[in-house]
Amino acid sequence: MDKVSVNAISVDRLAKRFEDVQAVADASFEVLQGELFGFLGPNGAGKTTTINMLTGLARPDAGTVRISGIDCTQNPKAAQHLTGVVPDESNLYPELTGFDNLCFCAALYGMNKKKRKARARELLETFGLAQAADRKFAGYSKGMKRKLTIAAGIIHDPTILFLDEPTTGIDVASARQIRQLIADLHQAGTTILLTTHYIEEAERLCGRIAFIVQGRIVRIDTVGNLLQPIQERHVMQLAVSNPDFSLHDKLAEAFPNQIFKTLPGGLIRVEAGEPIRVGPLVRLLEEQGAEVNEARRVQPSLEDVFVKITGIEAAAMRKEKEKKGGGGL
């Protein structure tokens, strides 16, 4: 079997420009069959544009797209029977019931009446929406709408699923449930390309991750490989009362092998290449009139890797998340 047939998705030097904005530039990546691949980046990074080009909703300016070995660059319809798409906005028909929406989506893939009814019932049950099957989609909550939109995306049992920001803007409980459903689909063998701006979500679900910033893929690797260099670092966080503005400089002067960062809420983050000795740190801080309330070791996360590679503060991404109204972990 050649390389192309093993890859569920192969993208080579894909590019898209909207007037004076380069939405996607020279993007190349491959997603293996059965893989859960994450596309991580802030809003406007080019995640949705990339998905649109892969699924036929946008025309690439340059580059090639292969889905299951089929060249879809010129004819995006060629592989649409293999793919399912869950867009970033729930786009089902407000005037139809949940059940009718699923049956209609199944019909678009040529499923006969008996099969589509059975599949719709099965998915409504799986997604916990059986009670709301006969209610109009317009009356669903945001979380229910997202779940039904995911159900519509997999109604025809696609081998490749594109999930665009599936947990954005919904409540915590629904977001958790959706993450579990994504994990179950992956377990069942579906290839998934997941875009998200939730770093923790990507870390928890994905095998490999691509960081995308301003239309460019800046790094692709497995979560383990991405975390490895940073896991060799030692990180500690101190909670301090009455911190002085000059504390940071004094700590840096006294402990030159350690990196200090003052965080909001009286927190001081300490990072070093070797184990951090807490005693001398606490003593120095107390000599300076600060009271140390807590000292705890912090496990380095993908967030640290993301910040290091992209230079984008995770706090800024979180603000976007809050603005969109939830979806926390």
Binding site: K77, Q80, H81, E89, C105, L108, A152
Partner: peptide, 14 residues
């Protein structure tokens, strides 16, 4: 406008 038309464009029909 409501993007439900995209669902039709994503279906494997010409």
């Amino acid at each position: 406008k409501g993007k439900s038309f995209d669902r039709l464009l994503l279906a494997p029909i010409s």
